[in-house]
Simulated assay, not measured.
Amino acid sequence: MDMEAAAKLAMALPEVAGGTGETGQVGFEVGGKGLAWGYVARPAPKAARVLVPGVLAVRCAKETKAMLLEAAPDRFFTDDHYRNYPAVLVRLEAIEADELEGLLRGAWKTVAPTAVKKRHPHV
């Protein structure tokens, strides 16, 4: 996987908006709520955050995050900034399309407003 392929999977979900901004930052949302975005990290303490190529943050339940981190640390990780946040960091080069599609679908179900979910009950 790469960011372009991940973007296609995210944009294929109903009513998802987003893409790549001027700074190269990528982000996707449904109903104004973020479901996935590019990972930015500090290269040094107190330094400005910079985009980390090939890593996508995907919203998920904290229980799901814990399971993913334990089961597949080669594909999923976290950092101090995300430690208590309901999103997992995904190494795109290490994940298959179907697994990322499932994560993005789960993120969509987590953040999509009720009205959007009613319009798209098949997701």
Rank of each mutant, 00 (worst) to 15 (best):
A36S: 10
K117M: 05
Q25K: 14
G32T: 09
D2N: 14
K65L: 09
V123E: 09
V16Q: 00
L89P: 01
L100N: 02
T20I: 13
A115L: 08
A57K: 08
G21Y: 11
G38L: 06
T114G: 06
M11H: 15
R75F: 06
C60T: 11
R49T: 11
K62D: 08
A44F: 10
G27Q: 07
Y85D: 07
E70A: 09
M1V: 01
M11W: 10
L35N: 00
M67V: 14
P113M: 00
A36C: 14
G27H: 05
L68K: 01
R83S: 13
K65S: 08
L68A: 04
K8S: 14
K118I: 13
G32S: 07
A71W: 00
A7V: 12
I95M: 09
G32D: 02
G34K: 13
L100Y: 04
Y39M: 03
G54I: 00
K117T: 04
E15H: 01
E93T: 13
F28S: 07
G54E: 07
K118R: 05
W108R: 05
P73K: 05
H122Q: 15
Y82I: 11
R91E: 11
V26L: 15
K109L: 14
A107G: 05
L69S: 06
E99L: 08
E63W: 09
D80F: 12
H122V: 14
A7D: 11
D80R: 11
